[in-house]
Design a protein around this nucleic acid. Structure first.
Lengths: 352, 352
DNA sequence: AGCGTCTTTCAAAGCGCTTTGAGAACTGCA
DNA sequence: TGCAGTTCTCAAAGCGCTTTGAAAGACGCT
């Protein structure tokens, strides 16, 4: 059943029916009631393609989804999408996910921009130098980036203070007397990994310490990578007494490595992780409640989506740039550095 | 730049330009080359809404995404989507995700069916009695369900043999001498949870054993739920010597609980989990490589998507019903039942 | 030259909706 | 009763594309 048929059925013109259904003021109340009732009875739904074509409003925002066979898809990404959905759902807007492979990624963004199926684009997970954002920023098409990157033109973004978060976390560990602190970070090309590293280095530098590159790892955020990185660090001849983790998934792997060695988090080795608030991995409910720097990635998704809507509505990019502070939540996985006799050998005061 | 403008620019009719671009045979090669080149130069992209309206082809399949604030979003769902993308991407098709809340879910499916923005729908995670599938099956609109459910009308589905998988897994444990076997299952309303339970019960029954309901847990598939369920089971006065887990995430929590108690998987307590192949949680790379029943949920997504395309193309539902066998992969987390002295007390031969 | 046969191009209709501009129909007032 | 002012309804154009049906042009043949 389409508009024309419904109109004929009611002996009205399509114009009137359309207006009645869309709540325009120039249609009589009795007429409107009649129309609405008939529409419901016949299960009439306006064809969204026709409507989009006529109005120019797309009713959707775009997200590109890079997937190759066997590639790691990130649970953080889904949680971000959930946040996006929280703001889009009530407005009746959809998310158009365009699958792509790494080599065709820019192309896919280009298609999304030009084919008119979405009103704006969200890009999540910014690289230190992000080609996608650079490409998008070169066009007037609305988009919002989750994370910042080093490109020349201004663009709308929402980021969290990763640098501050890890500076704070590192400082806490230093205050507790830890001198050798490992950093199991995310992959190196992500901007947040670099920001966290900067925070870590800054905190060390504040105390006149310099970092030992051997204590740093850049790995995908998975349990196994956390596990194997922790094993590597713990088996060093002069192992760290504290570990900073880029994600709670990594911390999970770290906990496994510690348990296996009879080491207790917070007593023998302190652990802090960044917690994006993944509901499947709750830091507060872990066997040993985890000290974290916390910022809900879902909330970020929700906010990024509403920023995008504002951008589509015409708000200038300069008014759409936010950096959120990050909370440091201290729980049981952190404690004073073991005074003597670290995990496997003397932790001899280090000054480097 | 739209088609008409491009046509004017080339001094051709829109017809010819459209045909040239879409590879129709009735346009000369020199003309086609000219058109293609001009289109590229001007960055022309056909407006997808207009194209959809004209052709009736939507270029997208729909997925509804139930999200409420604080609801658990499932990493398995994302992995399924990744699979879907694998088949859709190369064809240039998109995924339209419609956010919804639980109370408006059926409505959202209805909208998707009727507004014409997608050519078909994928529904993942079937309940034992699934209202969504029931609703969809009552209409001629193409859809494919991931998982089976108890509804009257026939519909297209792709499922795995959960019953067989857990029957096999349970049998293995029984062969190894285990008599008290715990089951940390997914949530009870999911069909796969019930199928797995059936397999578990069937294997016990084959040996003349009856199940102890106290050994069963139905919980969301998260690390913490795995942990707390394991703790509960292990602290029973007559604890199980083996645990079946509905997911590797659950197994991760179980490992934590075991480690905490100085118990070794495969020696003191055997553990088998169902492994959906989440790349973030690799069973084979765990501290103690995990014995699993394995079936890639990503592969399922890929297949479900191509089944949907077939359905859209007109294949009857009866030809689109698949149940995949599941592999049992034995690794180090399973071993013979401890002969005497279980985890915390005698495991006294049970016959029940 | 004249004719049929391909090949190449086009004008126009149509997809289902929204929206403009205008005409009926109805109101209240003098 | 006549007229301006509302209220309600409509015909028609247009969104940007595809596709049908037909015409024009090119070609080889007798």
């Amino acid at each position: 059943m389409n508009l024309k048929e419904l109109a004929e059925h009611l002996s009205l013109s399509p114009t009137t029916v359309s207006r009645a259904l869309n709540g325009f003021p120039e249609v009589g109340e009795k007429t409107r009631a009649r129309v609405v009732k008939a529409a419901e009875q016949h299960g009439y739904r306006p064809n969204s393609n026709a409507r989009r074509l006529a109005t120019g409003r797309t009713g959707a925002v775009g997200v590109v989804f890079p997937v190759e066979r066997n590639a790691l898809v990130d649970p953080h990404f889904l949680e971000f999408l959930a946040g996006v959905s929280e703001t889009l759902g009530p407005q009746g807007l959809d998310i158009l996910m365009s699958p792509t492979t790494a080599d065709r990624e820019i192309d896919t963004y280009d298609r999304l921009m030009h084919e008119g199926s979405v009103g704006g684009i969200l890009v999540s997970g910014a690289d230190t130098h992000d080609r996608r954002i650079e490409h998008l920023a070169a066009h007037p098409f609305p988009f919002v980036a989750h994370g910042r990157t080093g490109v020349a033109r201004p663009y709308a973004y929402l980021d969290i203070d990763n640098e501050g978060a890890f500076r704070q976390a590192t400082s806490l560990l230093l205050d507790l007397g830890h001198q050798r602190i490992g950093l199991i970070n995310g992959v190196a090309h992500r901007n947040y990994s670099q920001d966290r590293r900067s925070g870590y280095l800054a905190a060390l530098a504040e105390r006149g310490l310099t970092a030992d590159p051997a204590l740093e790892a850049f790995v995908p955020m998975t349990v196994e990578q956390g596990y194997s990185s922790a094993v590597r660090l713990l088996e060093m001849s002069w192992p760290p007494t504290a570990l900073l983790c880029g994600s709670t998934l990594i911390a999970l792997g770290v906990f496994q490595a510690l348990a296996e060695r009879g080491l207790e988090p917070g007593r023998n080795v302190s652990v802090i992780a960044h917690d994006d608030g993944l509901p499947a991995v709750r830091a507060d409910l872990m066997a040993k409640p985890l000290t974290v720097t916390r910022s809900s990635i879902r909330a970020a998704g929700a906010r990024a989506a509403s920023m995008l809507l504002a951008r589509i509505a015409g708000t200038p990019v300069e008014a759409l740039q936010e950096v959120w502070p990050v909370d440091l939540i201290v729980r049981a996985s952190t404690g004073p550095a073991p005074l003597a006799g670290g995990p496997s050998r003397k932790s001899a005061a280090a000054g480097n």
